[in-house]
Design a protein around this nucleic acid. Structure first.
Lengths: 339, 339
DNA sequence: CTGAAAGCGCTTACAG
DNA sequence: CTGAAAGCGCTTACAG
């Protein structure tokens, strides 16, 4: 709590505050011997700048926020980790915030985290649509991540969910499966997030191209993308008259729940039922059997989001961009068996 | 970027800045009609306080930091989620930081996150010992979480790792297993964290009480607590002359790696090998088979940490405390089979 | 290359 | 119950 101020350092070094500030901020034109004297004083006193003061003065804090629905959801945890890494390289400190997928929290966060504290925000929205976000009196540079809810009015980075979902469906179809259940359909009032609708679209398109129609009995509605919901929905599927021979889960957690229930029922994966997920979270790689999945390039997602934000902060009125990052289908044991 | 200031609101409402400040901060003695007029101006202008200015003035920011080694490690992700929830209840905003288990980063973070920006810090150290932490010129209230590296000089909250580890070991011994391997021993120079040493202690104690000795062939050294390491160590165990009939992994990720390899080798869990982990991460609940584990009360851990920090911030010189939170053994299929 | 001084937006004694 | 003014620690034109 010893609050060493710039002026303390200045007194010690026998120079003005301005000169100390110059040294601290790496300003070029300081005489070497002055610099050395100031640096010595800085070190002796253990000076560290007061960021509140600096931020008040400059109008920038060097803080950016990342807001995700939940930190304990593996996908978001992995994403957060990547974003923090990418932002740290730029010398930013990241304030990670948890919205719980709550519209109010998302709005608050989009409104600038209740204060002129952050220079920018990367938001993974669930509850809020593009319209809400545009309407909200934002005064903070914003980049949306992971959802194609943007209508072009806000910078946005995501994977092509429709194509990716179609690829996953085609993968199990190519294995000769014809009764392909989908886990992830949501009732209209839950489907704000967009992801559900987009992945559904890809699934239906792939079925259609194969001359198949989506069968409502194989597309149970679920309320959240958790293992528990995946397990419950799979139980329901298995209770039906005919058993699916493949399950495409719209995220890995749903798939892991499905795997759990299939094992409980003594069904073999993939022989009886093939399972493919989406997200490529680490859990899937070590599941029994290892989970096939669509792997979005999370590092690219994070990198692009941070770059878009940097650009937006530097030039607030630059045209918005919509960046797509690549994905890849990882065929593991849960669809193609032991290699 | 419309930067509405207190003085703008004051002008609009026809009162002084002081009065607006009083209303914003919920000061009691403001005449109701004045309050109403100010509130109206506040709403119309969409005023939001500048936190940098407030923090500069008050010396407090309302920000606390949580520093964990990695956000994408399930245990820390779940812990972070709990801490954020507990802190939010106090009206704090949490800045989550990732140290990568790097000593330099931990030191920086302990030194106040490079600026008088945060009011306090909850740190889950890996690389730094109590001595380092005490020595570092800290000027920020600090609470340590999860490791018993504290020597009483710093507030600390954790589970009783020795007792918990002993309980896990006793559990498999009580099932009649006698060749109990342990996954989690670390070479001395990796064992900074203390957790490895403490859990090892509990394991050895339980074996000893059962008249058994720890056998080096069943306690392979591992370098990190990941699924990959758990898998590799289990491969090594299975390559040995005699097979263990139980594995106690010092965390669930190691255990999940073990489960993966046991399945690959066609071994039945728990019939051939029982497996018990530590941490109770969600992945374990849906593993095949579901993973028995020691479950520390993470919510309590988070709550206590936040309370200790609140107390330390309010009274910087209050005596340090060492809080232990309860744990519970969850016996699931991986040790006791299908119920 | 360096200094003196203003001002970022807020809160808080101090008056009234 | 309300106002005028100082000051938190910094950066930045403005001089020299």
């Amino acid at each position: 709590m010893t609050a060493v101020r710039l002026s303390d350092v200045a007194a010690r070094a026998g120079v003005s505050v301005k000169t100390v500030s110059n040294v601290v901020n790496g300003y070029e034109h300081v005489r070497p011997e002055t610099r050395a004297r100031v640096q010595a004083a800085l070190d002796e006193l253990g000076y560290r700048p007061n960021l509140s003061a600096r931020s008040l003065r400059q109008g920038r804090s060097g803080l950016v926020a990342l807001a995700v629905p939940a930190l304990d959801v593996p996908y978001f945890a992995e994403l957060a980790s990547s974003v923090v890494a990418a932002a740290t390289e730029l010398g930013w400190t990241v304030l990670v915030d948890q919205t719980d997928g709550d519209a109010g929290r998302e709005r608050d966060v989009a409104a600038g985290l209740s204060g002129h504290l952050i220079d920018g925000l990367i938001l993974s929205p669930v509850a809020l649509g593009a319209a809400d976000l545009r309407r909200s009196e934002r005064d903070v540079p914003l980049v949306l991540i992971g959802e194609r809810i943007s209508d072009g009015a806000i910078d946005h980075v995501a994977v092509d969910n429709v194509a990716a979902s179609r690829t996953a469906t085609e993968h199990v179809l190519s294995l000769g499966r014809t009764r392909v259940a989908a886990l992830g359909f949501q009732a209209a009032d839950h489907a704000h997030s967009g992801v559900a609708a987009l992945r559904r679209q890809g699934y239906v398109a792939a079925l259609g191209a194969a001359g198949l129609a989506a069968d409502p009995t194989w597309t149970p509605e679920i309320s959240s993308y958790t293992r528990a919901e995946g397990a419950a929905a799979t139980e329901a599927l298995l209770a039906g008259a005919e058993r699916p021979d493949a399950i495409f889960a719209f995220n890995d957690e749903l798939a892991l729940g499905a795997l759990h229930v299939l094992a409980r029922h003594g069904l073999r994966v993939p022989d009886d039922v093939a399972v493919v997920g989406f997200d490529d979270i680490e859990d899937g790689r070590y599941a029994n059997p290892p989970l096939s999945t669509v792997s979005p390039d999370k590092a690219a997602l994070a990198r692009e989001a941070v770059q878009l934000l940097q650009r937006r902060i530097a030039e607030p009125s630059t045209p918005t961009r919509d960046v797509q990052v690549p994905f890849e289908l990882l065929a593991r044991d849960s669809t193609i068996g032991r290699r």
